[in-house]
Design a protein around this nucleic acid. Structure first.
Length: 740
DNA sequence: TGTGTTAAATTTTTT
DNA sequence: ATTTAACACA
């Protein structure tokens, strides 16, 4: 929509590039905004939102804006507010799940719930599923319940209610009982007036599918729909969006922002196809490509582009530098001996950067998997370099917090059986599985909750001795706390409940090192409750917003997984562990075929594009995996980065033969010369190298660590060897000698 | 019912 | 190696 020349361009549009402006000014009809890394995606999304409001196209309540994370939703809300100059209120802005929860509370009766339904966490889901599975007498060794939960979740991700699972889609899990158990599980959830996370989407979509009046109501409300991270949507989310966007008359004003090259969540149900198919799904869709990257240097962009070019089936997007300044440094590739040296090298580099005046908060270490953080933590700690682990175990997932939440849930809703079961014997009260089983029987005959069963057994004298006293004491504690809610408020009530029930004392008596920290966490939890008016309000918040904002202000190095880094950026990014089997991960190499490998590559792409000025990739020659050492070879992704954007140092296959004589710049640090005791991978004999006889399949070789073995595969200087007493390992040719 | 022992698993993560 | 979960036993 061209601007009237007489009307000055509003200042929120002034600093945008032409593509960005197009992405904002095409307000009508379906729009796909392909936004490469660092191209100002968030800015476009928020400005578009504000634009719709400021041009009078919609009231705040007429825009539906969905994100995946609470963090993204929060950010969008703040930035829209900033553009509007006032806090944005009455918006339908939130995560898929939060918005669905809001919708489901309005229409719960259509799926057999009432609007006060509760939302289960993963623990509860599993506990419930185990209970439901009991009548089938399934061998839980062969068929682990959590695996079945995965099957059910995947069905839900695809929009399959039990009735929609066809026999062809029925899993062979537990000899074909999976579907029946799924149905029973759903019935149980409904009976408990509860749903799990998948249900939030599933129920609402089911309502929209079957209740035309409800759907029409939302069509009237939502004039515009905005979707963030569209490449991460799963099938149910897609169906939900399509129902809301497609209307009998008028265009679908749905704008989706995404980047197929950053799709890294297929393992939890995301379908890249959703974004690849967009133009077919929404005929007449316009596509805007944001390709000007304002984040990274030319070198980093070119390296990342070269890497991702190895993937097929992309929508095709080339990141171009948006700034013409600084060419910058090449991507550094550093080979090291093992993970300890890797950590030393990174930590000394961090120290050097700090010496040069770089802020630690502008440095990140991004790894494939969580367990890789340990050596870095140890090293950084030893050197006195402050760091922060992003992600990892979340506050509301800690067991002591879960326990406290269970107490609160019972307090807020006495019928919450799952919560009651969790805490009935925590602290130990002598109420074990047998007693709980009896309570279940009683509850069933009463057709009421467990707490009612307890009360009836107490008054009926059915309980004896220890467990009677224990349960009577517990119920008293709940009753007293319940009375206190009215008089002194819910914070005091909860505190008193945790005291009276003996829960706090349990931790005070605990001699373990974690105990004081756990008490601190509980104190923090009590503080958080105070920010909410009522207990149910707080519990709803916890269920949907599992995150507790951390301190981003302090000057610390960030340690996190590559997945966790999506959407963030840093001046300097360290990318350790680029080895076959680690990254790409062994699992993806073994199971997922090319699809999985491409996803790993996208993950590598995400990692590289987090860097503004510097990216340093590391790979170790051997790595300790669980108990034993494994020789490892550099990740294929390293080779896939075009050589002209790369600077190699350390022990790589290229310069290994000179390595002993000429230590790399990173090996000269004061810390690398002396090694603590422990395993030292033997220095390889290099007889096999030097363009010497290439080692072919079938050759017998000797490895200093693994002994003799037969080569079962070869690709360049990477070998796959079946060792006599080590099994199949992947090693570099330079590590072995030919034997026969 | 609670405790000790053994066995198995062990990417990535949001909601 | 470390941790968690299931099972046997006191």
């Amino acid at each position: 929509m061209p601007q009237d020349p007489l009307i000055p361009t509003p200042d929120y549009l002034v600093r945008l590039n032409p593509e960005q402006r197009r992405a904002i000014e095409i307000t009508e009809g379906p729009l796909l905004i392909l936004a490469g890394a660092g191209t100002g995606k968030t800015r476009v999304l928020t400005t578009r939102f504000a634009h719709l409001l400021l041009t009078g196209r919609a009231y705040p309540s007429q825009i539906l804006a969905v994100t995946f994370t609470n963090k993204a939703a929060r950010e969008m809300r703040e930035r829209v507010g900033a553009i509007l100059g006032e806090p944005a209120e009455g918006l339908w802005l939130g995560t898929f799940h939060a918005i669905c929860a809001r919708m489901l509370r309005r229409h719960a009766e259509y799926v057999g719930l009432n609007s006060g339904f509760t939302i289960l966490d993963t623990d509860d889901q599993l506990r419930l599923l185990k209970q439901v599975m009991e009548p089938w007498r399934i061998d839980t060794k062969r068929w682990p319940p959590n695996q079945l939960l995965g099957v059910i979740q995947r069905w839900k991700d695809r929009g399959l209610t039990p009735d929609r699972v066809t026999s062809a889609e029925d899993s062979d899990f537990a000899n074909g009982h999976a579907l029946a158990i799924y149905r029973a599980y759903q019935e149980r959830l409904t009976a408990l007036n509860t749903c799990d996370f998948g249900d939030l989407m599933l129920h609402v979509t089911e309502i929209l599918r079957t209740q035309p009046n409800v759907l029409a109501q939302y069509h009237r409300i939502f004039r515009y729909i905005l979707v963030d991270e569209y490449q991460d949507t799963n099938t149910i989310q897609y169906l939900w969006l399509r129902l809301l966007a497609k209307r009998e008359s008028g265009p679908s004003n749905i704008a989706c922002v995404g980047d197929d090259d950053q799709s890294i969540y297929s393992w939890r149900g995301a379908e890249v196809e959703n974004i690849l198919r967009f133009e077919k799904d929404f005929p007449g869709a316009q596509v805007v490509r944001l390709e000007r990257n304002y984040r990274s240097t030319v070198q980093i962009l070119a390296a990342a582009a070269g890497l991702i070019a190895h993937n097929d089936g992309r929508l095709g997007k080339t990141l171009r530098p948006g700034r013409d300044d600084a060419e910058g440094e090449r991507v550094q590739i550093i080979g090291v001996r093992d993970s300890d040296e890797e950590a030393r090298v990174v930590a000394s580099a961090v120290e050097r950067l700090r010496g040069n005046g770089h802020a630690l908060s502008e440095i990140a270490i991004l790894m494939r998997a969580g367990f890789q953080t340990r050596p870095f933590e140890e090293r950084l700690m030893m050197m006195g370099l402050p760091y922060r682990i992003v992600g990892g175990q979340r506050f509301y997932e800690r067991s002591e917090i879960r326990d406290c939440l269970a107490y609160m849930r019972v307090l807020a809703q006495g019928s919450d059986d799952l919560a009651f079961e969790r805490i009935v014997n925590v602290p130990k009260r002598g109420v074990g599985a047998v007693a709980v089983q009896k309570l279940h029987v009683q509850a069933r005959s009463l057709n009421g909750p467990l707490t009612a069963a307890v009360r009836s057994q107490l008054s009926g004298g059915a309980l004896k001795g220890k467990s009677r006293e224990a349960l009577a004491g517990l119920m008293d504690a709940f009753d007293r706390a319940f009375a206190v809610v009215e008089t002194e408020g819910h914070v005091v009530a909860v505190e008193q409940l945790l005291e009276d029930s003996g829960y706090l004392q349990m931790w005070r008596d605990d001699r373990s090192v974690e105990a004081p920290g756990r008490l601190d966490n509980i104190r923090e939890l009590l503080r958080a409750i105070g920010e909410f008016g009522t207990l149910p309000e707080f519990l709803e918040h916890v269920a949907l917003v599992m995150d507790m904002e951390g301190d981003t202000s302090e000057d610390k190095v960030s340690l996190m997984t590559l997945h966790g880094s999506k959407g963030l950026e840093f001046d300097t990014v360290f990318l350790p562990g680029w080895e076959e089997g680690v990254f790409p991960s062994q699992r993806s190499l073994d199971e997922g075929g090319n699809r999985a490998l491409e996803e790993e590559r996208r993950l590598a792409y995400v990692g590289l594009t987090r860097a503004r000025k510097r990216a340093i990739v590391l790979h170790a020659a051997s790595r300790r995996i669980y108990a034993n050492w494994q020789a490892s070879m550099p990740s294929r992704f390293i080779e896939e980065i075009p050589a002209e954007y790369v600077e190699v140092s350390g022990q790589t296959s290229e310069n290994r033969r000179h390595a002993s004589a000429a230590p790399s710049m990173f090996a000269t640090g004061p810390l690398t010369s002396s090694r603590p005791s422990g395993f030292r991978p033997p220095r390889p004999k290099v007889t096999a190298l030097k363009s010497g006889p290439s080692i072919g399949v079938g050759a017998t070789v000797f490895h200093p660590k693994f002994g003799e073995g037969v080569v079962t595969g070869a690709e360049g200087d990477r070998l796959e060897v079946n060792f006599e007493n080590g099994g199949v390992k992947r090693v570099m040719a330079s590590f072995v000698e030919i034997r026969s």
